[in-house]
Amino acid sequence: MNTDQLDMNLLRLFEAVYRLGSVSRAADAVGLSQPAASQGLTRLRLALGDALFVRAGGSMRPTLRAERLASVVQPAIAAIQDVLREDDAFNPSRSTMTLRLHMSDIGEARLLPELIAALHRDAPGMRVQTAPLAHTQIADALETGSIHFALGFLPSVRGTERIELLSDRYVVLVRAGHPLLAAKQEPGAVQDLHQLEFVAVRSHAETFRILQELGLDSRLVVTSEHFLALPAIIERTDLAVVMPRAIALRFTHTERYALLSNILPRSKFTVSLHWSPRFNLDPAHQWMRRLFVELFTKSGSASES
């Protein structure tokens, strides 16, 4: 058998003749004239070395070879047609996809509550998995589809599509009743920070950079692997932490914490949504991008005092 003589059109014609039992009806179904359909069927017979169909009464009856071929060709054509006929509109209410995201622990605290609430409302069947990746791995993970999106302040990530979602800045958080607050109503000078000792999260390099620029890296006494431990440490000690203002404000609402008014060097940053250009036209991707923009750009910047 010379498979080079086969193409998709011949297989579509074969499937139509098999299904309809008529060359003329098959020609109409695939958009060919009857002579062209007859010529195509002859080509297929020669390529396969089999008659494929024999006349029986008023219809075309398949040979055993045609039966075996149809058992493979019909599901293959049906699968291709299903893909080509997919509705361009993603239906989130019926989706059961698992959304895979790169996020840091602070990113989870800042973004996940609103995201999960929106998905629970609009896409209740969707699942979410988050995992922090090394920044050097993010672009490849997006390209291969092992994650759908990366969210955060990721200036070293290159070769991705990106939308800026929100702005924020780093601030210093201490416990309410901290001695520095008691000694000075508005401890706003950079020099005041040299009276503090600090705790930091290892995965957030920007906080280390800020402490270093202020000459405070020697005042770092606790380095934690996870953000979750920091609030309890701050509440029970006189240590301070550098963290995004949007997160810090959540703690000050409890009246157990306070923000210092110090303006930190190069403290502003943007949180962006990253994805691979490969998925620009994917309907689910497009819906998720619109959702992220709707959720996190509507409130504007978080960097204002």
Results as ranks from 00 to 15, higher is better:
residue 260 L to N: 09
residue 165 L to E: 05
residue 15 E to S: 11
residue 128 V to D: 08
residue 302 A to W: 07
residue 285 H to D: 11
residue 27 A to K: 00
residue 201 V to H: 00
residue 256 R to K: 13
residue 276 S to D: 05
residue 293 V to S: 03
residue 48 L to E: 08
residue 159 G to N: 14
residue 250 R to N: 06
residue 122 D to M: 03
residue 258 A to G: 15
residue 154 L to F: 10
residue 227 F to D: 15
residue 21 G to A: 07
residue 6 L to V: 00
residue 19 R to Q: 10
residue 276 S to Y: 04
residue 213 E to C: 11
residue 38 S to Y: 10
residue 182 A to R: 10
residue 185 Q to K: 08
residue 123 A to N: 14
residue 118 A to L: 00
residue 108 E to P: 00
residue 69 L to R: 10
residue 86 E to D: 02
residue 64 L to F: 12
residue 203 S to T: 15
residue 144 T to E: 14
residue 186 E to W: 13
residue 233 I to K: 01
residue 268 K to R: 09
residue 292 F to M: 06
residue 201 V to K: 01
residue 109 A to R: 13
residue 265 P to C: 06
residue 218 S to T: 15
residue 176 A to W: 01
residue 183 A to T: 06
residue 70 A to R: 06
residue 190 V to H: 02
residue 215 G to W: 03
residue 63 T to V: 07
residue 230 L to W: 09
residue 124 P to K: 05
residue 298 K to Q: 05
residue 277 P to Y: 07
residue 228 L to E: 10
residue 203 S to F: 09
residue 130 T to D: 02
residue 105 D to W: 10
residue 94 R to Y: 11
residue 158 R to S: 12
residue 305 S to F: 10
residue 243 M to R: 02
residue 240 A to P: 03
residue 165 L to P: 07
residue 110 R to D: 07
residue 225 E to F: 01
residue 129 Q to N: 11
residue 43 R to S: 05
residue 43 R to M: 06
residue 226 H to W: 08
residue 277 P to R: 04
residue 234 I to Y: 13
residue 55 R to T: 14
residue 244 P to V: 13
residue 18 Y to P: 02
residue 289 R to C: 13
residue 212 Q to E: 11
residue 103 M to D: 00
residue 216 L to P: 08
residue 69 L to C: 06
residue 9 N to R: 10
residue 137 Q to D: 15
residue 283 P to R: 10
residue 95 S to H: 06
residue 76 A to H: 12
residue 192 D to A: 13
residue 190 V to Y: 00
residue 277 P to D: 06
residue 84 L to W: 08
residue 199 V to A: 15
residue 91 N to E: 06
residue 174 V to D: 08
residue 68 R to F: 13
residue 209 R to M: 06
residue 33 S to R: 09
residue 191 Q to P: 06
residue 281 L to V: 08
residue 16 A to C: 06
residue 75 P to A: 02
residue 214 L to I: 12
residue 106 I to C: 06
residue 268 K to P: 04
residue 131 A to C: 04
residue 122 D to S: 08
residue 170 Y to A: 10
residue 196 L to H: 09
residue 207 T to P: 13
residue 1 M to V: 15
residue 268 K to T: 08
residue 14 F to W: 04
residue 194 H to R: 15
residue 233 I to E: 00
residue 162 R to M: 13
residue 135 H to L: 12
residue 117 A to F: 03
residue 119 L to F: 02
residue 276 S to E: 03
residue 103 M to C: 10
residue 31 G to N: 03
residue 90 F to T: 05
residue 246 A to K: 13
residue 202 R to W: 14
residue 18 Y to Q: 01
residue 56 A to D: 04
residue 26 A to L: 05
residue 229 A to N: 05
residue 296 F to L: 03
residue 169 R to H: 11
residue 250 R to E: 11
residue 154 L to D: 03
residue 162 R to S: 12
residue 160 T to G: 04
residue 60 M to R: 14
residue 95 S to Y: 09
residue 270 T to Y: 12
